[in-house]
Design a protein around this nucleic acid. Sequence first.
DNA 1: CTACTAACGGGTCTATGGTTCCGTTAGTGC
DNA 2: GCACTAACGGAACCATAGACCCGTTAGTAG
Lengths: 203, 203
Amino acid sequence: MADGGEPGTLRPGGRTARVREAVLRAAEDALTEQGFTGLDLADIARRAGVGKTTVYRRWATVTGLVADLLLDMAEQSAPRTETGSLLGDLTANARLVQRTLTDPRQGALFKALIAAATCDPKTAAALRRFYDIRVREWAPCVRQAVDRGEVPEGTDTHEVVRAVSAPLYYHLLISGGRLDGAMADRAAEAAATAARAGVYVRA
Amino acid sequence: MADGGEPGTLRPGGRTARVREAVLRAAEDALTEQGFTGLDLADIARRAGVGKTTVYRRWATVTGLVADLLLDMAEQSAPRTETGSLLGDLTANARLVQRTLTDPRQGALFKALIAAATCDPKTAAALRRFYDIRVREWAPCVRQAVDRGEVPEGTDTHEVVRAVSAPLYYHLLISGGRLDGAMADRAAEAAATAARAGVYVRA
DNA sequence: CTACTAACGGGTCTATGGTTCCGTTAGTGC
DNA sequence: GCACTAACGGAACCATAGACCCGTTAGTAG
C-alpha cells in the first residue's frame, strides 16, 4: 500500500531493469521501422518478450515510452573530437550529425522522436534535455575559440552549436532533400562565419 | 462505372468543393487544438458538419487529410515586403516566420503538420511543396543582393532563405525555448553574414 | 532460508476508430 | 426541365488498442 509512486521505482534492480532495457530497445526498433504512428504498445511488448500489461502499466502511452527512451538515450554520450580550430570542430560536429541523420535507421528514429515530442509536453521536455546534453558537450569548442580570440567575448556558445545542427534538421524534417557532406560543411562554415562576425554575442 | 479515380475528381464543383473547404478548415482547427495525435476523422466530420463516411471516403487517413490541407495552404500566398537591403529583407522574413511560429494557434498547427509529414511520404512531399513555394517567394531578395554585388555570384538563393528559417524551426521543434524577435533578428543576421562571405555559393 | 510484496503476465472485457451498406441529395449534360 | 450518376450521409457493423482482473514470479529484508 505504501507505494512510492510509479511502478519500477521501488524495486529498480534485477528484473525491472531488464524489462526496461528490453522494452526500450524494442521501442527503438519499432519506432525506427514503423515510425511514430502505427506504433502500438502490444507490438512492442511482443518484440521485447514481455507481457503487454507490463508495458501499459509502466509507460501507459506511446509518448510516455518515447520520453523514457529519450531519457535513456541522454545517458549515452559520444565524445567530441578536437581539431584545434573552430571551423574544424564545428565541421566535425556537423559531419557527425549529418551521418546520424542520414543513416536510414537513426534518421527514421530521430524523425519519430521529434514527431512524438510535438505531441506531448513531457516528451518534448525529454527531447530538449537530450539535446541540451549534446549541445553542452560541444559548447567547449566554441568557448576555446573565444579564448583564442577567434570569436568575440560574450558569444552564446550553445547557440553557435545549435546553429550548426539547425539547417541539417531543417532539411531532414522539412525540405527533405539528400543532406550530404557538402551541406554539413556549409552548415559548419555558416555558423563559424556568423560567430566570428559576432552575431551570437548575447545582448 | 467509368470513374476517373479518387472521389471528388469527377464533379469538383459545388457541393464537393464546399465539403472540402469545410473539412479542411475543421482539420486545421482540430490539428491546432488536439495536435497530430488525438485526432480522429469522425471528430473532424462532426466539426465540419459532414458525414464521417465522406471524410473516410475522400481522405481515408489523417495523414492523407493533412497532405490535402498542405496542398490547400500552399495556394494562399503572403507577399513579401521589400526593404532594399539583404539584411532588411531577411529580417522581415525571419520576423514573419517568428510571428507565425510564436502564435499559439499557428505554432501548434505547424508542429502538427511537420509531425504528420514525418509519418507519411505523401504528406512529406506536400510539406516540401508548401515550403518550396514559400522559399521561392523570398528568393528574389537574395537574387537582388547578388545583382547589387552584396553577395557573390553563384550563391544558392533558396538555401539562404532556408538558412533564415532553420534556426527558428529548430527552436520550435527541438530546443523548445521562447523564440523571440531577437532570435529572429539573429537568424537573419547569421544568414546574411554567411551569404556575404560566400558560404552559400554553389560548388 | 523464509516471508513479504513489487512487479510481471496471461486472459478477458470494452470503448472506439474505422469500414461497409444502401438510400438520399445534388452537380452536370442535354 | 429531366435523366443520370457522382458524391453525400445515417446507421449498423467490425477490428483492435488499451483497461482490468487476478494468479505467478522474483527482488529484497530479516
